[in-house]
């Protein structure tokens, strides 16, 4: 197996186009597991860790964070907790310290697992994935359109993920993840919430409860319409619960070895109810 190590983004895209049999590898925390279990036998590995551009983040005009695909979770936690609190909370739940030092948001998107923990907060924040190819240049895909099936995404064979563009939080964000132990666990269900008081909107993201990560648009609209954005008075009786039920209704979970469909739905309702309560309290305190 060849090990290809481009040192620039340009070179990486060129190799990607030339070697369709080369599997990109960033932190390797998914790729190495696949190789060890003999689930994949790629002709080559395309190592992206020498591509400096991927390992940087910056703030764009308009206040969006451009997060390089190769920035590991540990840095998201350490450097972006204020701008991207939802993503940082999710990053904190990923694996163990070792995994958080290696694993990247780009890799999470590359794997596109329904259980990927970065996905719900990116959905809730309304992020875009920036992908690129040598032949066609760059395109930006809203994260809600990015996932196409279980562990599948919109990437063409010659494309790589360059970055993810995440609006800086304008209001409180929450991320909650249920697992059957208290650390190092793949989520049984996960929920992300972002309040956007600037545009009086609500963002959501559901993990591990459908073939792909997904939003709960109906729940978002319902909540955005019911919240007292102007006076920020306490949540009316029953609103959080009604929101939770709508979030649960948006899921399409299955029974598997990690949990049952019924429990996944139930837990989403609880998580969404709690998350909105905390987020709204935060917003009121901030006022």
């Amino acid at each position: 197996m060849d090990f290809l190590q481009p040192s620039s983004w340009h070179e990486a895209l060129a190799i990607r186009a030339e070697r369709p049999d080369a599997l990109p590898i960033a932190g390797g925390t998914d790729v190495m597991v696949e190789l060890n279990f003999d689930r994949r036998r790629p002709g080559a590995l395309l190592d992206l860790t020498r591509v400096g551009e991927l390992r940087e983040w910056s703030v764009e005009d308009g206040g969006r964070v451009r997060l390089g695909a190769g920035v590991p979770y540990a840095r998201v936690i350490g450097e972006l907790g204020d701008r991207l609190p939802g993503l940082a909370m999710a990053a904190r739940t990923v694996g163990s310290p070792q995994i958080r030092v290696r694993g990247t948001v780009g890799g999470n998107l590359g794997s596109a697992s329904p259980a990927g923990d970065a996905h719900p907060p990116l959905l809730a924040a309304g992020a875009e994935v920036e992908v690129a190819s040598a032949a066609r240049g760059t395109r930006r895909v809203p994260v809600a359109d990015y996932f196409t099936g279980v562990k599948r995404n919109v990437l063409e064979p010659d494309e790589l993920i360059a970055a993810v563009l995440v609006p800086t939080a304008a209001g409180p964000q929450q991320f909650c993840k249920v697992g059957t132990r208290n650390a190092m666990v793949i989520s049984v269900s996960a929920f992300a919430l972002a309040l956007h008081p600037d545009r009086q909107a609500v963002g959501t993201g559901i993990g591990s409860a459908a073939p792909t990560p997904r939003c709960a648009p109906e729940a978002e609209e319902f909540l955005a319409g019911e919240l007292d954005w102007a006076a920020r008075r306490p949540l009316p009786e029953g609103l959080a619960r009604a929101f939770g039920e709508r979030v649960a209704a948006a899921a399409a979970p299955i029974d598997d070895v990690r949990g049952t469909a019924a429990y996944r739905r139930h837990s989403l309702a609880v998580l969404a109810r709690r998350a909105v309560t905390w987020a709204w309290d935060d917003l009121r305190r901030a006022a």
């Binding site: 909370m89 929450q174 991320f175 909650c176 989520s187």
Partner: peptide, 11 residues
């Protein structure tokens, strides 16, 4: 319970 999964703040 749930630890950094942030599933409860005591509720």
């Amino acid at each position: 319970p749930g630890a950094v999964g942030n599933t409860t703040h005591g509720e």
